[in-house]
Amino acid sequence: MTGHDLWVYGVVAQGDEVRPEERNIEGGEDFVWIRAASLAALASYVPAADYNEKALARHQDDASWVVGRVQASAAVIADVFSRRVIIPFKFGAVFSTPESLQKRLHEQRTEFHELLKRLENKEEWGVKIFGSIEAQSIRMVEWKLDQAVKNGVTSGKLYMLKKQLRQSNLRDAERDLKEKARRVHQLLLMSTDAHQIGKAASEPPISGNSVCLMKSSYLVSSSERNQFLTRIHDAGRQYEELQVKVSGPWAPYSFCRTK
């Protein structure tokens, strides 16, 4: 199509081409499957003038443009993912011609086929663990105070507790919370095939100044989903000082890096 590029959503094995029930990235209903090397890439045509490098750079500052397209792209991928194995492409993968896309599929056919095999019946789950360091420091001083009362208070112990209360004991509290978050992660690894640790520090705090202690993505077999979620639920009950936020199931966005 003259003046049009191909926006690529992802790749499936040939034979797995299902018609998306969502609208394409431009709000239309048309999709195309570009086939090569027993693979099929799901794409839709977009006006080249609106998707070239300059135009995209301009759109980056337009949240409504980007967010709308992110939602559309995610909906299409999620729809195919609910029925077939799909390797999602990174947002912004635009090819000028079907031939250039076919060439790429052909060149990376081995990796794509291996990935498709590895991702069969797998789904991605996102887990973020939050905790309030300040609240934890208070809990820790309270606990020490209880212990002190139980075992006999001395003026030395009181002095230390007062000092800890003044300093809020933040470093110890942070270490304690991070250790608990690590234990939850270890527990989740028992029901997962692969995992990726993200940058917790880049996550904004949630209500009550709870900071992100750990941010991870897990590749979970569909058959293990209930066990995985039960583990998270149990961990949440065991460590009441942690807030565990779960999102999923996602198409395996974090587990499809090619070599």
Binding site: D5, K90, R104
Partner: peptide, 11 residues
Amino acid sequence: KGVVIAGDITV
């Protein structure tokens, strides 16, 4: 996230 493919990709 997602597959990053270099080469003939235009954008």
